[in-house]
Amino acid sequence: MIEAVIVFLGLAILFGLLLGYASIRFKVEGNPLAERIDKVLPQTQCGQCGFPGCKPYAEALAKGESEVNLCIPGGTEVMIQISEITGREPKEMDAEAAEPKPKEVAFIDEDLCIGCVLCIKECPVDAILGATKQMHTVIQKECTGCEKCVPVCPVDCISMLPIEVTTKNWQWPEPQTVQEAK
């Protein structure tokens, strides 16, 4: 009886020490969870999640302070990825965000632009070029399509346009799947 107790006590102490040692020895620096979430986010920096950018949202998610379904540009796909990383239940997206939208970029109607620099200040990735009283233009390659510049424009000269299909970026469509592949 007493031997058994001693043996188990000894084992408990041994494993406890081992675990404690391991937790110190193999401690992971930083918050890899937030990093991983940040990786799957679309980096539009649009702020539609209510956070000032993708990284803050990722950090909030890592801490468990936010819902998984807030990333509008990412849509359902990103929501599922987030829930896989965080190990939380997937949640329905809001109605309009559930459908994947083709990527759009901002376009400034240069005849209307008054050069107020409001959109330049708003752009999270500095993709708008221009200066005070000069008409602005969007660097299409760098625009993330976050739509943040659209509401701030005082003259409504910014519109979101889908990227034009040319022979250069045209894609072969996927073959229609057979009926049985459902």
Binding site: D38, P42, Q43, T44, Q45, G53, C54, K55, P124, V125, D126, A127, K141, E142, T144
Partner: peptide
């Protein structure tokens, strides 16, 4: 593009 956007935002 995502990487670029991230860098530019940061």
């Amino acid at each position: 593009a995502v990487e670029l956007a991230k860098q530019r935002h940061e």
